[in-house]
Amino acid sequence: MSLKIFVAVFLGVGTGYFFLPAEFSDYIGTIIDIGLMVLLFFVGIDLGKQKDILDKIKKLGLKALLVPLGVIIGSVVGSMVVGIFLNMKINEAGAIGAGLGWYSLSSTILLSDGYVELSALAFLSNVFREIIALIFIPLIAKYIGKLESVSTAGATAMDTSLPVISKSTDPQTTLIAFITGVTCTIAVPIILPIILKIPI
């Protein structure tokens, strides 16, 4: 599966670079949206067929929120730590990690604040995060752990990464992944500006 994902992204990059006119990017948002809806619909059907899943989630309760909490703290701390080695301002490095894989929003927030280069960095870094997540989720689920595989996805755990998680783990983990994605998605526009304003 990881190989298929890599090939699909790679072919897309090639097609976009060599064959498509720049005007095509106007339609991409709509195409992605429709594709996501189709995917989520079928993931929903998969979840629905597991009839005892709601009971399991009720049993988990608020503990399910530990996963997004770990993802948020881990992403921000991780990017701050590496920011020190890359000679970056710690708050700016942390803000990139706080994008949690949501490249369009994180780069837009930074751009609107006047950070041009940081915005490009946030865009690329969070695109890479999504690609890393998509490629490695099946491997991490198999060799490290299912919840750990969810953690790589961040905000994308509720949409782009969800089908991969659903294929690589089980219905219960898929539901936690969705909760994680939703929580991270809500968190990005809140924590990113806050971390950027930390005077360090």
Binding site: I5, A8, V9, F10, L11, G12, V13, G14, T15, G16, L20, F24, S25, I28, I31, I32, G35, L36, L39, E130, L134, T160
Partner: peptide, 8 residues
């Protein structure tokens, strides 16, 4: 979907 993401 991934193909389209690559295109972007």
């Amino acid at each position: 979907l991934l193909f389209v993401m690559g295109i972007t």
